[in-house]
Write a protein that binds this DNA or RNA. Structure first.
Lengths: 338, 338
DNA sequence: TACCTTTATGCAAACGTTTTCCTTAAACGT
DNA sequence: ACGTTTAAGGAAAACGTTTGCATAAAGGTA
C-alpha cells in the first residue's frame, strides 16, 4: 500500500524495455517518437502513477516554468486583485506562479529575491515595498538574464519592464474635481515620499490646484504612512482649529475612510461641509455612507499587463536593456462624498 | 560585465584548491569542517557571487524546504489574512511558501496538487474549494509521506491534520442571539451544502432556534452560492410578500451586506424592523451603517495554527495516520445591526 | 613504539531528468 | 542496385548538489 519510492522515468523504461531517453521524449511528445510508443509510454506512466520530478528536470534543462511574484502584502484589495489576475493569466500559459509577500520590509524583500533566484525561476514580477529606494538587490536577475517586470510600486530608473498606473493623472483629477465642486480650503493627506506612487499622486494633485490658482496651505499637507492610526492623528491636528477644510484628498482609501468617520463624529456633513476623495476604489468605498468618491486603478488590467509582459520576455528569452514603461489609466469614480 | 554562468560549488572548490564536498559542507556549517576553512569558503562564495542552486540541492537531498499552500482565493479578507499569517510563521522557521489559488475550481485544485507534488514540496497546507467533496486527489501526498494540513474548508474524514473554526458554535451563537433580541420570524441565507462550513453553521443555527422553540419556515431558508447577485435575488424573493422577516442570518458577510443595503432601500430600519448578522467579521462590516454584527473567526490564529502544524509534521517527518482536529473558537461581535 | 581516536578532508556515487550525438533499419529516388 | 534520406530510438554525458565511505594527519594512551 505505502508506496515509498515514486516511480521514475527509468522505472518506466525498464518495465517497457526501452531506454529512459525514449520515455522522456515520449512524455514530451517529441516528434522523433512514434505514436505507438508514445501511447504505450503514457499508458504505463499513468498506470505506475508516474509524476515528473521538476527539480531534476529544471536542473538539467535550466528552466523551471515558474514565475516568481513579490508583493508587499496580499491582504490589500488592490494587491490581491492583481495577484489573482496575474496568476490566472500566467497559469493559462502553462507556467506556475510562486507568490511571496515582502510585508513591506526591505530586508525581507532582499531575502525573497535571493530565494527566488535560488529556485531558478524563469522570470520575476515585483511590486516593491513602500520603502525601497535602492533597487540594486534586483540586479542579480538582470545580471543573470532573468526577465524582470515591475508594477505599481516601481523604480524610477531600472532596466526592466515597468507597468504602472497614471498616478499623476489620478492625483490631478482628484484635485481638479475638488476645485470644480467649489472647495477652496483643501487638505491633502499623502503617503511617504519614498514611494513613486505618492510622489506622483502628490505632484498631480498639487498641479491641479495650481492650474486652478488655488494654493495648498503647508499645514494642510501631510506625508506619512497611510495607516488608520496615522489618519486619526492627522485628523486631530487638522480639525483642532477652525476654519475646517472643505475638501480632503487622501492618497489611499483606508485614510479616506478614517477621515470620513472622524468628520462625521465631529458632526460635519459630507459632502455639504466637507468633500472627501480616496484612492484605489476599495470595496469599502461604496459601502460607506455617504459613498466615497475614489480613483479606480483597474488592478485586473494592471495584473494582466504585468503577466503578459513577463510571459513575453520569458518566452522570447529576452531581457530588456533599458526601462520600458506601460501606463494603465485611472478613472475618478464619483460618488456621494463629493 | 554580463556574467552568464553563475558560479557553482565546483568553481569555488577549484579556486580554493579544495574539494566540492568541503565547500558544500563548509557552507552548511558542517561540524567536520574547521572554522578556518569555513571562513575561507564563505568569503570566496561571497566574492564570487555564489548562490546555491536549490533545484540541485533538492534533487539530491530529497527536500526542498518549501511548503505548498493551496487556497481558494486570496482576494477574500479572511483568506488573505490567513495567508499572511501562514507565510510569516513559516518563513520565520526558514522554510518558504509557495501560494497557489484554486479559484474555487476543483479542476484547478487537482492540477495544483500535481504541480506541488512535482515540485517536491516538503509539506502542503490546503483550504479546499467550496465544491470539493471527493478529496482523493490529495491521496498522492499521504501515499508519498508528505505531511498535509487542511484548514477552514476541510474534509470530513481524511488522514491529516485539520484546523477548523467552530462553525457549529458560531452558527448557534448567531441563532441564539437573534432570538434573544426578540426575533420571531427569522430568515437564513446559507451557502452550498457541499462545504463543511455551511453544513456546520447551518446545523448550529437551526439547533439554536430549536433550543429556543422557534421554527425556521422552510421558505425562509436558502442554500446557494453566497455571491452578491444571489443575495439580491434571494432578497427579491424574501421581501416579495409580507410579513417581512424580523431577523436574518447570512453565512457570509458579502451576503449580509447586500441584504443590509436591500432592506434599507426598502425603507426598513435596522435594527428596529429587522436585525442582520453576518459571518467572518470582514472590515466592511464595521464601516457600513449601522455597523453589522458578525462572527469573528480569528484568521490570524487559524493561520498560525496551520503553519505550526505543518512545521511540526515536516520537521519530525511524520505523517498522521488518522484525522486529527484542532478547533479555533469564534466570537459574536455585536454591533448596531442587532 | 604500537595502537586507537579524533579531526579534517577528499573521492565518487547518486538524485531524475534532458539533450547531444550516434546507430540502425526502413523507405525512397533514380 | 546503389547511394541517400528519413524515422525511431539508444548510450552516455550533463545539470549542481549532497553524502557515505575512505583516508591522512594529529593527538592520546599504555
Amino acid at each position: 500500500m505505502k508506496q515509498q519510492h515514486s516511480s521514475t522515468i527509468v522505472d518506466i523504461a525498464e518495465e517497457l524495455h526501452v531506454s529512459p531517453s525514449t520515455v522522456s521524449r515520449a512524455l514530451k511528445n517529441n516528434p522523433h517518437i512514434s505514436q505507438k510508443t508514445k501511447d504505450k509510454v503514457k499508458k504505463m506512466a499513468q498506470k505506475m502513477g508516474y509524476r515528473r520530478n521538476s527539480l531534476a528536470a529544471g536542473l538539467r534543462s535550466k528552466k523551471s516554468d515558474i514565475i516568481g511574484l513579490i508583493v508587499p502584502r496580499v491582504s490589500m484589495f488592490f494587491q490581491s486583485t492583481i495577484v489573482t489576475a496575474i496568476q490566472n493569466t500566467i497559469h493559462a500559459s502553462g507556467y506556475n506562479v510562486i507568490v511571496c509577500q515582502s510585508n513591506d520590509s526591505v530586508e525581507l524583500e532582499k531575502e525573497l529575491v535571493n530565494t527566488l533566484f535560488d529556485s531558478r525561476v524563469d522570470g520575476v514580477i515585483v511590486s516593491s515595498t513602500m520603502f525601497t529606494e535602492d533597487f540594486s538587490h534586483f540586479d542579480i536577475f538582470t545580471k543573470h538574464q532573468i526577465p524582470l517586470v515591475f508594477y505599481d510600486r516601481v523604480p524610477r530608473d531600472f532596466p526592466a519592464r515597468i507597468i504602472r498606473g497614471k498616478d499623476y493623472e489620478g492625483g490631478w483629477d482628484a484635485g481638479n474635481f475638488l476645485v470644480e465642486r467649489g472647495c477652496k480650503n483643501i487638505a491633502f493627506i499623502n503617503g511617504l515620499q519614498t514611494c513613486n506612487l505618492y510622489q506622483d499622486r502628490g505632484a498631480g494633485f498639487i498641479k491641479a490646484l495650481e492650474d486652478n490658482h488655488i494654493k495648498l496651505n503647508k499645514n494642510r499637507e501631510f506625508n506619512h504612512l497611510l495607516t488608520k492610526n496615522n489618519a486619526v492623528k492627522t485628523c486631530e491636528e487638522l480639525f483642532s482649529t477652525k476654519p475646517y477644510p472643505d475638501g480632503v484628498f487622501c492618497a489611499n482609501d483606508t485614510t479616506a475612510i478614517e477621515v470620513h468617520q472622524y468628520v462625521r463624529k465631529l458632526g460635519l456633513k459630507i459632502p455639504e461641509d466637507i468633500k472627501i476623495i480616496g484612492y484605489s476604489n476599495d470595496p469599502r468605498t461604496e459601502i460607506i455612507e455617504p459613498a466615497m468618491t475614489s480613483v479606480e486603478q483597474y488592478p485586473t488590467d494592471m495584473g494582466a499587463a504585468a503577466a503578459k509582459a513577463i510571459l513575453q520576455l520569458v518566452q522570447q528569452k529576452s531581457v530588456v536593456q533599458k526601462q520600458q514603461e506601460e501606463l494603465i489609466p485611472t478613472k475618478l469614480i464619483v460618488r456621494s462624498s463629493t
